[in-house]
Design a protein around this nucleic acid. Structure first.
Lengths: 147, 147
DNA sequence: GACGAGGTTTACGTTAACGTAAAGTGCTTG
DNA sequence: CAAGCACTTTACGTTAACGTAAACCTCGTC
């Protein structure tokens, strides 16, 4: 065993700063508790674009962040298409023309409105859950007394 | 035209209190902006159980509330199966045994934890969106100056 | 040099949540 | 009574988001 550059969480795991670290597909998969298949699928859908080292995919910090954002979006019920829409426009920003930028701002506004609605939904849902919970505990307490 | 009991938003629309009103499938569909097909599908999945008047489905206040909760759950990304799980246990509550009730309380706890995570996700997502938005506006402003 | 752990491509399978089309019922309105 | 709605059932179609299987490569290791 003499300094294996491959295998293991990447030799740079501790020595290099985050920005220069790289990840294998398996590593990322474990970090986010998804399968490699999922990550490849996201690439196919244009959400990730890792570089290659021979045949193998090499993921950098940027890719990791993207994956994180993608999964967060998923947890909020967004479709991959929606997520891609924003992500791609974000990337196109630097050299974007005015029309594109305005469109992006519009989309962001919609997303924000959407998030606000979700926020409210969560609030209401919590109230219901708390209510059901309270009732359940009440009934349970009654059952205890009857013995 | 002599007092038609069928057709029209239900004769009780204004005269009866909410608790006694009934709805046709079309009415509900319009109220929540879904198709009748969706409502029938939810019934098939055990989320709704309207009574019948001959062949036609009759929805009462209880059904309307259930549909509302179901759609709210959907907006939050829950599957119909998850939603049904809670809804059915809720209905089974009154005569539920201790074990079932404890299980229900457990599930509710999970749901709550889930909602909390979503809340945090939304917060983070908003921050990102605000950030992207700010950048977009900056770039846009720069473009304006260059003319 | 066999092998096991990771990685790769290709391609077909699966599940949830409806959409869509066809064919029929029941009422009321011109 | 024909037309037109609103409703019904049955059944096949569709899309998103992966799962799963097969067949292959490429290391470092025993």
């Amino acid at each position: 065993m003499s300094r294996s550059p491959s295998q293991a969480p990447d030799e740079s795991a501790e020595t290099l700063p985050r920005q220069q670290r790289t990840y294998s597909i398996g590593e990322l998969a474990r970090m986010f508790e998804v399968t490699p298949r999922t990550i490849r699928f996201y690439e196919q859908e244009g959400l990730l674009a890792p570089s290659r080292q021979g045949q193998k995919r090499i993921y950098r910090e940027k890719d990791r962040v993207r994956l994180k954002l993608t999964l967060r979006g998923k947890r909020l019920g967004f479709s991959l298409a929606e997520i891609r829409e924003v992500v791609m426009m974000y990337d196109a920003m630097p050299d974007g023309n005015a029309r594109q930028l305005k469109r992006l701002i519009e989309i962001l506004d919609e997303k924000r409105a959407n998030l606000d609605r979700q926020m409210e939904d969560i609030r209401l849902m919590r109230l219901e859950i708390d209510d059901v919970d309270q009732r359940a505990r009440d009934v349970l307490r009654q059952l205890g007394k009857e013995d």
